[in-house]
Design a protein around this nucleic acid. Structure first.
Length: 247
DNA sequence: CGTTAGCCCTGCTGGC
DNA sequence: TGCCAGCAGGGCTAAC
């Protein structure tokens, strides 16, 4: 049975009941949510949060695969999709096809799609007083940017994380759109960031963390101007920036 | 409506 | 060297 915390607020039994005997018809993604489209027209939704890992494995599980196991989907060919999560922050739930549209409505556009452009971001930021860093992490503005990528994109765009979002001018917004897309594309090419436990579906580490410019580099020299990278808190999140490059 | 603070979790880090 | 408070963070809710 799944870990009740992972299925909450739904029960583990409910998740099992909706998955038993089903076929996964299609895989998709929306923001940070992974979508498994079932032949019942329902969606199994999984969010990995910080320490979640989703891997395909042969059964039976080895001893090494048992710790922190939160959810396991066993397939007819004796393989399984296993969800490991040390901090139990990850979530999984069943979404009815009829309710799916309403659920995803609260998410902003995909950052790598053309609908996320300077025109969109300009109107989305207008009159907002929150720090730009907090706005980039707001999934209703743009879906899928996490703490690492916000820091790296703001550095590349040379924008201070505390700048009130509505104060950015058109040129800065254009730089920001470009740096967000470039940062995410680069991170995807390097298969993500493995600071902690992240591994891809084949169990491999990402390499983007090896190329961080400012994130988690407080006290080190900025790769552009050699000034010292600073760490502050913005919206409760650790935030790293170069005080000289990012004004 | 816009915004912020607090909470959930647990393994690791940093400071003493 | 050993201990333990505090950090890490995405998204939700409550409160202002």
């Amino acid at each position: 049975m799944p870990d009740p915390l992972v299925t909450a607020p739904q029960s583990p039994a409910r998740l099992k009941r909706h998955l038993l005997g089903r076929t996964i018809r299609k895989l998709d993604r929306r923001g940070k949510y992974l979508l498994f489209e079932l032949d019942s027209n329902e969606l199994l939704v999984i969010h990995l949060r910080m320490t979640g890992r989703l891997t395909r494995t042969q059964l039976p599980l080895t001893t090494a695969e048992k710790p922190h196991l939160r959810l396991m989907l066993r397939f007819a060919d004796n393989t399984a999709l296993v969800f490991h999560d040390t901090r139990r922050f990850g979530k999984s739930f069943i979404l009815a096809a009829t309710g799916a549209g309403a659920y995803w409505k609260k998410l902003g556009p995909e950052p790598l799609e053309s609908s996320f452009n300077r025109k969109y971001l300009y109107q989305a930021l207008a009159k907002r007083k929150r720090p730009i860093k907090s706005v980039l992490l707001d999934q209703a503005i743009v879906a899928g940017i996490g703490n690492i990528y916000a820091d790296e994109a703001l550095f590349e765009a040379r924008i201070h994380p505390l700048r009130p979002a509505g104060d950015l001018d058109a040129e800065e917004i254009q730089r920001l759109v470009r740096s967000i897309k470039a940062t995410l594309r680069r991170a995807i090419r390097l298969q993500g960031s493995s600071i902690d436990t992240y591994r891809d579906a084949r169990g491999r580490k990402g390499r983007f963390q090896e190329t961080f410019t400012v994130h988690r580099r407080q006290g080190e020299a900025c790769p552009v101007c050699k000034d010292i990278v600073q760490k502050i808190k913005v919206g409760g999140r650790g935030t790293y920036f170069c005080p000289r490059c990012q004004s």
